[in-house]
Amino acid sequence: MAADKVKGGAERPRWSLDRLVETGLGRTLVRIAALLALIGAWQLAGNDTIGLLFPTFGRTLVAFWGLVSDGTLQVALLVTNQTLLAGIIVMLVVGIPVGIMTARVSVLDRIVTPYITFLVAIPVIALIPVIQAILGLTFAARVTVVVLFGIPYVIINTAVAVRRVDPVLTEMATSFGASRLVILRDVVLPAAVPGIMAGIRIALGQALIGMVVAELTIVGAGIGSLIADLQGRFRVAPVLAIAVTIVLEGVLLMTIVEWIERRLGRWSQS
């Protein structure tokens, strides 16, 4: 204790393992080791003896290869991602203008915002039977699900970002005689970009959930039907392989959006 105090009143004591991750190389090695440990644990925890047990990593990998080698998984993912893409496009094309308008028109704000808050608070999946009753087992129904999952976050974050724009900047533009439209285009929107991007990132996470939910409930030709088919034949390993693939796709898409977010928001980090 006493020696400790003498050594460094100011320096915090650290666990020796923390020294490992002080360099970039150390961090990379630790990450690789963690991945290997995870795979090892998975392999050990898995049990391939009977059909409906948690499959090992090896068997899941084999199942994955089985799905990929005949193109089944690729086709299913392609179909499923069409839903996601359409949903995201609708989300942005509708959500961003609505967000801007709610920020600028106070009556609209007071009407729209409670409904959006409601949509955030409730599990959207509960609305699926209604969507299905109205739109049937269609592409449009699945896209609607994706949109409902994500759009509240686009609207809310856009509105907040637009409202938070420094009033001094709009005052400055006004003093140079800029019209409302020019101020919106040249000042408000660029200033709101980082906030809007943050909203898009959150909405993408939700839209991915919506995509899976839509696939599993309003089954079409995508991964939903593939999973249903495999479930019917009690084959866990390929279902797990599909689940991991979707999660990895999610991680990839989120990483891309985060990268775009950082690029567009570089000026806002001081």
Binding site: L208, L216, L240, I242, L248
Partner: peptide, 9 residues
């Protein structure tokens, strides 16, 4: 952020 719901099946 990933769709963990994919594990439900």
């Amino acid at each position: 952020s990933a769709p963990m719901i994919a594990f439900v099946p």
